[in-house]
Amino acid sequence: MSVVVVTGAGRGIGAAAARRLAAPDRVLLLAYRRDAAAAAAVAADVRARGGAAATHALDTADPAQVAGLFAAADGLGPLVGLVNNAGITSPAGRLADTDPADLRRVVEVNLLGYLYCAREAARRLGAGGAIVNVSSAAATLGSPGEYVHYAATKGATDTLTVGLARELAGAGVRVNAVAPGVIRTDIHALSGEPGRPDRLAGRIPLGRPGLAEEVAEAIAHLLDPASSYTTGAVVRVAGGL
């Protein structure tokens, strides 16, 4: 069976993407950082939908661990896709007040981690393969007063998407991104403000936060061979933001 790697698959957008991508001819390798029980629950959901799944614990900021993830994928079958999703932020606040350790960690996971995963995928994907990077509307909005450093890494994600798409086009490999806006996931609680989606709802043209499942639909579309002429695109899933 063909293999799709999904990073950050234990929760939020990654978990929703895994559930959406479940298919009888595909095995999903679900990468997670800490919560083995959550990843196992997502794998069970994938199997209940007729797909196959395995889980793998790692820190994507460590290139050796990323190499181990893709070695595990090699043991499952030919790689056809990567959902490059594992990401973090830190307590919300002004850049001037952000701890340098938090700055470093966000860059290591959100930028270097994406580069490491994309690098390993690029070594394996053949014609028809695809990478979907999970970016953010913050890449263009900047997230002032909250997550400027996070937004900067997502701007880099968009650049990675465009550059790698052009680099791999000759091999028939597509690279795209989705840029979610305010989505109901636990990242807001982890950054210290669980009520943030509701606080920002009034600023969103559609009048509500989005759902992880809505982002997963865009990811699935971009991975699908039906999107064979789409590469280098950053698809905004942000309710009009």
Results as ranks from 00 to 15, higher is better:
residue 6 V to T: 05
residue 9 A to E: 01
residue 11 R to F: 02
residue 11 R to M: 06
residue 11 R to P: 00
residue 16 A to F: 11
residue 16 A to L: 05
residue 16 A to P: 05
residue 17 A to T: 15
residue 17 A to S: 14
residue 25 D to L: 01
residue 32 Y to D: 00
residue 33 R to M: 00
residue 35 D to V: 10
residue 37 A to H: 03
residue 38 A to W: 10
residue 42 V to P: 07
residue 42 V to H: 06
residue 44 A to P: 04
residue 44 A to D: 15
residue 45 D to G: 15
residue 46 V to R: 09
residue 47 R to I: 01
residue 47 R to W: 07
residue 49 R to W: 09
residue 50 G to L: 11
residue 51 G to W: 15
residue 54 A to H: 07
residue 57 A to Q: 15
residue 58 L to M: 12
residue 63 P to T: 07
residue 66 V to Q: 03
residue 66 V to A: 09
residue 68 G to R: 02
residue 73 A to T: 15
residue 79 L to Q: 11
residue 80 V to L: 11
residue 82 L to S: 05
residue 86 A to F: 07
residue 91 P to W: 01
residue 92 A to E: 07
residue 93 G to T: 08
residue 105 R to L: 12
residue 106 V to Y: 00
residue 107 V to P: 01
residue 108 E to M: 00
residue 108 E to D: 15
residue 110 N to V: 02
residue 111 L to N: 03
residue 118 A to P: 02
residue 120 E to D: 03
residue 121 A to P: 06
residue 125 L to I: 14
residue 126 G to W: 05
residue 127 A to Q: 12
residue 130 A to P: 12
residue 130 A to C: 15
residue 130 A to M: 10
residue 131 I to L: 13
residue 131 I to N: 02
residue 133 N to H: 08
residue 133 N to Y: 05
residue 133 N to F: 04
residue 136 S to Y: 01
residue 136 S to M: 03
residue 142 G to H: 01
residue 143 S to W: 03
residue 147 Y to F: 12
residue 151 A to Y: 00
residue 151 A to E: 01
residue 158 D to P: 01
residue 158 D to Q: 13
residue 165 A to L: 03
residue 166 R to G: 15
residue 167 E to C: 03
residue 168 L to P: 08
residue 169 A to V: 13
residue 169 A to Q: 01
residue 177 A to S: 14
residue 181 G to E: 08
residue 181 G to M: 09
residue 185 T to V: 12
residue 186 D to A: 14
residue 187 I to S: 05
residue 194 P to N: 07
residue 196 R to P: 01
residue 196 R to T: 08
residue 198 D to V: 13
residue 201 A to E: 11
residue 202 G to P: 08
residue 204 I to L: 08
residue 206 L to T: 08
residue 207 G to P: 09
residue 209 P to C: 04
residue 210 G to V: 06
residue 212 A to N: 13
residue 220 A to P: 09
residue 222 L to V: 10
residue 223 L to Q: 06
residue 228 S to E: 13
residue 231 T to G: 02
residue 232 G to D: 15
residue 232 G to K: 13
residue 233 A to E: 12
